[in-house]
Amino acid sequence: MDDDPVDTKPTIEEACKPGCSQRWADYEACIKRVAASGDEEAHCTGQYLDFWKCVDVCAAKKIFAPLK
């Protein structure tokens, strides 16, 4: 095979992201809040993980479908 096969997982996750737009908005709001506070220790891991949790739950069942 000359061409490397292309993984479908990123595409599936991309398709799930619109359903998690509220989580992403929370994350972006956090970024603004952190930037405004000027606190160097502050980070947005919680919101970031919540967003990916939402994407994961949506994508988990679909990721295995095209695989053997």
Partner: peptide
């Protein structure tokens, strides 16, 4: 993607 070659010719994507 394509990191190994399967002997049953399954496309070796990252997820696979």
């Amino acid at each position: 993607d394509g990191g190994v070659e399967f002997d049953d010719l399954t496309p070796a994507t990252t997820s696979q």
